[in-house]
């Protein structure tokens, strides 16, 4: 990559709904996908990100800027990530994790996955189904059989009425 001396390089990212965003190259290359483009010299014009919408991209860029401003201090980075994700609902988290996967940002993907897992922790099957809108396509007999197979994993779990 031919970085110009003095001025920090800025990249222009385009979401799939045609919103344009400017972001410092140093922050954007947290995404391995973008970093590869920069290294291959194909980041000169506008970088189209076909799998990310504007709302999600704005959020991801906020994260990129926030985390890259923190010096190498894993504790501080972790607490930034926790705070950044603390007020996000599941729909937003799902958009973020898909974007992180597409952009190949392992730290964000890991943090969002952990956050989603946290929601499921210690919850009954019925609660998780309701929370995430998962349709139970087992017949009652099939469900009973799967439960029976893993019966002991249900020890100590909160039960609720439909479970």
């Amino acid at each position: 990559m031919a970085a110009e001396t003095g001025t920090p390089t800025t990249l222009t990212l385009k979401s799939n709904d045609d919103e344009l965003f400017s972001v410092a190259e140093s922050a954007a290359i947290l995404s391995v996908t973008i970093r590869n483009m920069v290294e291959d010299g194909c980041a000169g014009g506008v970088i189209p990100l076909d799998n990310v919408d504007g709302k999600t991209l704005a959020s991801v860029i906020t994260y990129m800027n926030g985390i890259s401003a923190i010096p190498a201090d894993e504790e501080k980075k972790k607490s930034y990530r926790d705070k950044f994700l603390s007020d996000k609902d599941f729909e937003t988290l799902a958009d973020m994790v898909l974007a992180a996967n597409y952009l190949n940002m392992s730290c964000l993907m890991d943090a969002v996955s952990a956050k989603i897992a946290q929601v499921m922790e210690k919850k009954s099957v019925g609660w998780v189904r309701r929370k995430f809108g998962i349709e139970n396509d087992y017949t009652p007999e099939e469900e009973a059989a799967v439960k029976e197979e893993h019966k002991w994993t249900f020890e100590g779990v909160e039960t609720d009425d439909d479970n």
Partner: peptide, 11 residues
């Protein structure tokens, strides 16, 4: 345990 338990969610 929790990972195994997700098998009951749906097919």
């Amino acid at each position: 345990e929790e990972a195994v338990r997700t098998s009951v969610l749906s097919k």
